[in-house]
Design a protein around this nucleic acid. Structure first.
Lengths: 196, 196
DNA sequence: TGTACATCAGTGAACGCGCGTTCACTGATGTAC
DNA sequence: TGTACATCAGTGAACGCGCGTTCACTGATGTAC
């Protein structure tokens, strides 16, 4: 174990994530991160030499944990008949807080300008897309990989798109009652339709 | 007509949009906007007193034009049997450039922190969601408003989510061939499924 | 047509501020013998 | 166990820079009489 160093970098990244989520990248500064982690600017820079290093590390940490969570959700359902439905339900439940959604929207915006971030985000999506493909194929082996791949991509797009209607981003007057059940049903139906 | 003033504000907002799309909100500054619009900072501020005023105006301009385009797409299809399919196809075609997508991702990120922007964005989504509901009900009158509303919301989420896989944001290794056709088919099928 | 004056459009300098980064320095902790 | 020394962790000041905003000022254009 490397207790001291790990503790330090962990608290720096936690502070950085909080600042990014609460204030956005435009207002993200090393001084704020240091203050939030209760240390001096100079000391923070002993661990991460530049602002870019902090952002890179924070990105890696967040995506790794989100990927772990999402894939676990999808795989946990196992072979049950309603595996797909309960996995989708779990993913939707994870979106509830809106905090993660806020972080991801920031990262999407950054990805438009930073190829490294774009690649990391892409790898993250590919990760749970793959898990979803497995799930689809297990439920409907006749689909074939190509069709299952496209449909999984549509499901990912729909689920990610739904985060945009979360409370944090909009008062969402879109008719919301029962939307989650409808989403689950839509994805299950999407999976089962006759192949293209 | 107010030729001079309009010309000026128009070129300011065009410059501001370009800067926001190319550099992101974090790097968005009045000096850059002024330089791009080929005028002095002081003169720009004669038209918009503060940075917030520029952002507000640019938001209004962009959303109004995007809303006009999207609703036109959805309504142009008229009563034809394949109205829904061709409307969805048109919306997907509009996404092709990625430029608009970049702008919207920036706005989503800002919406997380600015209620005014969140409200404007929400109104925009509500606009084309409404058009989509009409289209769904015309194609399948038996659905009922509630179900049609939920399904239109899912379609909006899917279509918005798909913008995230556009070239500008990711090298997109997700299996893309035929994805658009699959999306059209999925939304048509979503519309026609037996009501919940 | 000419004159006086107000408004409009545009200029340029200055302000104070927070930023990322650099750097010389200080103790504490670990290692070698 | 003690001493010498290297590395680690942390401090605090300073730098130059771009930023939003304020402001006094200047011509050009429009209006009144």
């Amino acid at each position: 174990v490397l207790p001291k160093g790990r503790e330090r970098t962990e608290s720096i990244l936690a502070a950085a994530t909080a600042v990014l989520v609460e204030e956005g990248y435009a207002a993200f500064s090393l001084r704020k991160v240091a203050a939030r982690a209760d240390m001096r600017l100079g000391n923070l820079q002993y661990y991460y030499r530049t602002k870019a290093d902090v952002v890179r590390a924070l990105l890696a940490r967040s995506l790794a944990s989100a990927a772990r969570a999402a894939e676990a959700r999808l795989l946990a359902a196992g072979d049950a008949r309603d595996a797909l439905a309960s996995a989708v339900r779990a993913v939707l439940a994870d979106q509830e807080t809106g905090e993660g959604a806020r972080l991801f929207v920031e990262l999407w915006a950054l990805a438009g300008r930073d190829p490294e971030i774009a690649a990391a985000l892409q790898a993250y999506h590919a990760g749970w897309w793959r898990a979803l493909v497995h799930l689809l194929l297990r439920a409907h082996p006749g689909l074939g990989r190509a069709v299952a791949g496209r449909r999984a991509a549509l499901a990912v797009a729909m689920l990610e798109g739904l985060t945009l209607f979360r409370p944090a981003h909009a008062p969402r007057r879109l008719p919301l009652t029962g939307l989650e059940d409808e989403a689950v049903a839509a994805i299950v139906a999407l999976a089962g339709r006759q192949g293209t």
